[in-house]
Design a protein around this nucleic acid. Structure first.
Lengths: 210, 210
DNA sequence: TAGATTGTTAATCGATTAACAATC
DNA sequence: TAGATTGTTAATCGATTAACAATC
């Protein structure tokens, strides 16, 4: 039985990964936890604690080999795998996600985009045709999908979530306001943009008080 | 001197706000911390602790008045104010946010969109014309801007951040990979979409192990 | 070897949960 | 009034930081 890693740790992993990537870009081949902690604004202790949840990647007296650590974290994050992905909801955010991030390079393959709006169905977005949401179940019967991106209104999301879970989709990247307790075997990552904006507005208000 | 509220608490406030909003939509006028905790998957203790950071909004033996609490949290989050907002980087995400937030109709007013791409400059996005980024400084001299949304590549962001802070923008909603330690009086809220996706991929990998 | 820095255990700090007196 | 539920203090739990022996 493995020990459960806390989400706080997991959410720092992508940051480590990004920093290590930029170190590599700058030709830096080794780094100590102390040095990395200064750059990232963390403590060296925390970095060593975090990494040692997954293994002993460093070397006493030397520090960490940047490239080695980079690829270790890559593996920990599951970025060495490829994922079939669909987008449900082809509105602004859905289309932006389809276009903006170069998923392909990182192992994310878009295999379908769905919407219920007849004006959108059939449109071609950068080589991907928007399908009728009514064909979703049938599509899932024939295509293995690892991750579904939910970029549709919260009230529509509830029904869709049922369908995709039923059809075996195990990862949900949720941009809608709908949140559910996922059944065992299904994982969900929520991105609540309005929550984030509200947090900013709170911080702004606090700052201006001082 | 006020006591500092932890970010963990602050990040729950928008969730409370959303839940209370939906309770109001359903005509529910009062709620106990126990009842709310069940719906939200938290403990009643936590809800009471969280709220009591800001005041005593409930009543013994009764619970909380939904509408009152809703408006209290609204005020705590600074949502009773209006904010002038600009978007810097009119790519997919920038355009999506322009449409998305406008649609939300809270107190966020878009007053400008900027880009450096000549193909985008001059284009009209839902009534807002994309301006040349070179005119940004001048624009900020003449218009009060509370929040700048950064939806441009990380390498371009560094220079832009300097300019907007210098010109008195105090809130930054950052979608770029660039992260900085903000000077006093300036607040920044980061949305790292790729980090979020990496977290999902980690969770997926973990789930499939079991 | 001597110096540097890890991996890891112990101490501290902060956040969550439990308990209960106050009171509507 | 009696029952319900808050506000708040105390206890617990977990995460971060400090310390240091191991070792490259």
């Amino acid at each position: 039985m493995e020990k459960e890693i806390s989400t706080a740790v997991i959410r720092r992993l992508p940051r480590y990964y990004r920093y290590l990537g930029s170190l590599m870009d700058n030709g830096i081949t080794r780094i100590s936890s102390r040095d990395l902690s200064r750059r990232m604004g963390l403590t060296a202790s925390q970095i060593r604690q975090d990494l040692n949840n997954f293994g002993a990647f460093g070397q006493q007296g030397y520090g960490y080999n940047v490239e080695k650590l980079y690829y270790e974290i890559r593996k920990i994050l599951g970025l060495d795998k490829t994922y079939n992905m669909i987008i449900i909801g082809a509105g602004n955010i859905g289309q932006a996600l389809l276009n903006y991030i170069n998923y392909q390079r990182r192992g994310y393959n878009f295999v379908g985009v769905f919407d219920k709006n007849p004006k959108l169905i059939g449109l071609n977005i950068r080589g991907t045709v928007i399908r009728d949401i009514d064909t979703l179940e049938n599509f899932l019967d024939n295509t293995k999908v690892d991750i579904a991106v939910l970029t549709l209104p919260g009230n529509d999301a509830e029904e869709v979530i049922k369908i995709i879970i039923d059809k075996g989709v195990r990862g949900i990247w949720n941009f809608s306001h709908m949140t559910i307790k996922t059944p065992p075997g299904v994982v969900m990552e929520n991105v609540h943009l309005t929550d984030s904006l509200m947090t900013l507005s709170y911080k702004l208000k606090e700052e201006s008080k001082e």
